[in-house]
Design a binder for these strands. Structure first.
Lengths: 128, 128
DNA sequence: CCGCATCCACCACGATACTG
DNA sequence: CAGTATCGTGGTGGATGCGG
């Protein structure tokens, strides 16, 4: 069928499996936070500093979703001032490799893509 | 630093590289179409049939963006009735492996995620 | 058959202000 | 420090109709 015979189950289902995961992790911040947490336990503020551009709101929401999906654990300490730490679960850590595979592809091809996009834009219309 | 020493350049830039590619391919349909086109040249209608749930509009838009990024080629035949075929470029084909890596992860962990999400939902509030 | 244009609903996301 | 609440906006994507 293709060069990936053993992945027919992925494509054979009309992409439903891939879709399911894309719907979960393909938002703006999820993969980024997962990769950042590869370092180990981090506090809320540390995450906010290491993921430039993320708002307090989106950080909270994304962390909640990741916790809900069992990809990380949230540990709150009853101290003053408060301290909350986030850490990947084994499932969460298993996402790092696929995420970095994608990132590796990005590094290799982003230049080509930019070039192609520029060329296309110059001879035609604008896209999204 | 972590188990992925050689990927510091990815995380060291504050996630900008990962963000750049996420912004491009992490929409609702892009990866799905790339994986579908692993089969070879396909017509517009074939794609629409093999990617259940995609609207004509989104298929058109996604294909345009992929063409613009140099990931696939669009070939129109001046026939009656019209025929248009889409095929991955080498760059496009190189995306299949990372995409399937992600898909493989999905297959392995989607059940756990669903379970965790259900358990979380039962004892708390609704999310996104 | 292909796919563009228009209209429209929704939600992801950001900015800001306030709380334990 | 670590959130929650509220509001506003733009982009994403679905439905429909038309044009090549």
């Amino acid at each position: 069928m293709s060069q990936y015979e053993d992945t027919c189950m992925i494509k054979g289902d009309g992409g439903r499996t891939l879709r399911a995961v894309l719907d979960r992790i393909c938002d703006k911040w999820t993969l980024l936070i997962v990769v950042t947490l590869d370092q180990g336990r981090l506090r809320f503020t540390d995450l906010q500093r290491q993921v430039p551009g993320i708002s307090q709101r989106m950080l909270t929401l994304t962390l909640r979703n990741l916790e809900r999906d069992g990809l990380l654990t949230r540990t709150a300490y009853a101290e003053v001032p408060p301290r909350v730490e986030y850490e990947l679960t084994p499932t969460g850590r298993s996402l790092i490799a696929p995420a970095l595979t994608l990132a590796g592809w990005a590094i290799e091809h982003i230049a080509d893509i930019e070039a192609s996009r520029t060329a296309y834009g110059e001879r035609g219309k604008a896209g999204r």
